[in-house]
Amino acid sequence: MLDKIMNDLMDLEAEPQTPVFDLSLDTRTEGDITTLSVTPVGLQERRGSNVSLTLDMCSPGCTEPYGYGAQLSPRDQTAKEYLREGTNTLTPSQLHTRAIDDQALQAEFYETPMNFVDPKEYNYPGLVRKNRYKTILPNAHSRVILRTADEDEFLSTYINANYLQGYGGEERAYIATQGPTVNTVGDFWRMVWQERCPIIVMITNLEEKNEKCAEYWPEDSVTHEGIEIKVVTVTQEDDYSLRVFTLKFGGEERSLRQYWYTSWPDQKTPDKAPPLLELVEEVEQARAEAPPTSGPVIVHCSAGIGRTGCFIATSILCKQLRSEGVVDILRTTCQLRLDRGGMIQTGEQYQFVHHVLSLYEKQLSHIVEE
Rank of each mutant, 00 (worst) to 15 (best):
E219D: 12
P218N: 05
T235L: 14
I227P: 00
V231I: 03
V232F: 06
Y240V: 04
E215T: 13
E219S: 09
E237G: 08
T235C: 11
E219P: 10
K248W: 01
T233A: 04
Q236A: 09
Y216S: 03
I227F: 00
H224G: 04
D239N: 15
H224I: 00
E228R: 13
H224S: 05
L247P: 00
F245V: 00
T223G: 07
V231G: 03
I227E: 00
R243S: 11
F249C: 13
G226Y: 01
T223S: 07
S221I: 06
R243N: 10
Y216F: 11
G226N: 02
E215D: 12
T246Y: 02
T233M: 03
V234F: 11
T223W: 00
T233I: 01
E237Y: 12
F245M: 05
V231W: 10
D220Q: 15
D238E: 15
T223Y: 03
V244C: 07
K248Y: 00
V222L: 12
T246L: 11
V222W: 09
D239S: 14
L247E: 03
W217E: 03
V234R: 15
T235R: 14
T233K: 08
V231S: 04
F245E: 02
E215R: 15
K230L: 09
L242H: 02
T223H: 06
A214M: 14
I229H: 01
Q236T: 08
D220A: 08
K248G: 05
E237Q: 14
Y216D: 00
V244G: 04
T246S: 14
F249R: 15
I229V: 03
Q236W: 07
I229Q: 02
W217F: 11
K248R: 15
F249V: 10
E225Q: 15
V232G: 04
V244F: 06
V244M: 08
Y240C: 08
A214N: 10
L242Q: 03
V232Q: 11
V222F: 08
E237P: 07
Y216G: 03
E215F: 12
E219G: 09
V244T: 03
S221G: 09
T246N: 15
T235Q: 13
L242D: 01
F245T: 01
S221N: 12
H224E: 06
E225Y: 00
E228V: 11
P218W: 00
R243Q: 09
I227C: 00
Y240W: 09
Y216C: 07
S221C: 13
V232H: 12
Y240I: 05
F249G: 06
L242R: 02
V232I: 11
K230V: 06
I227G: 01
Y240G: 03
H224W: 00
V232Y: 05
T223D: 05
E228P: 06
H224M: 04
Q236G: 06
E237S: 15
D238P: 07
D238T: 14
T233W: 00
F245Q: 02
V232W: 05
F249D: 10
E225P: 07
I229C: 05
V244Q: 07
Y216I: 05
P218Q: 03
V222P: 08
K248Q: 09
V231C: 06
V232N: 10
E228L: 14
I229W: 01
L247V: 01
E219T: 11
F245W: 05
S241Y: 13
L242G: 02
D238M: 12
E219H: 11
E219N: 13
W217S: 04
L247I: 02
E228F: 09
S221M: 12
V232P: 05
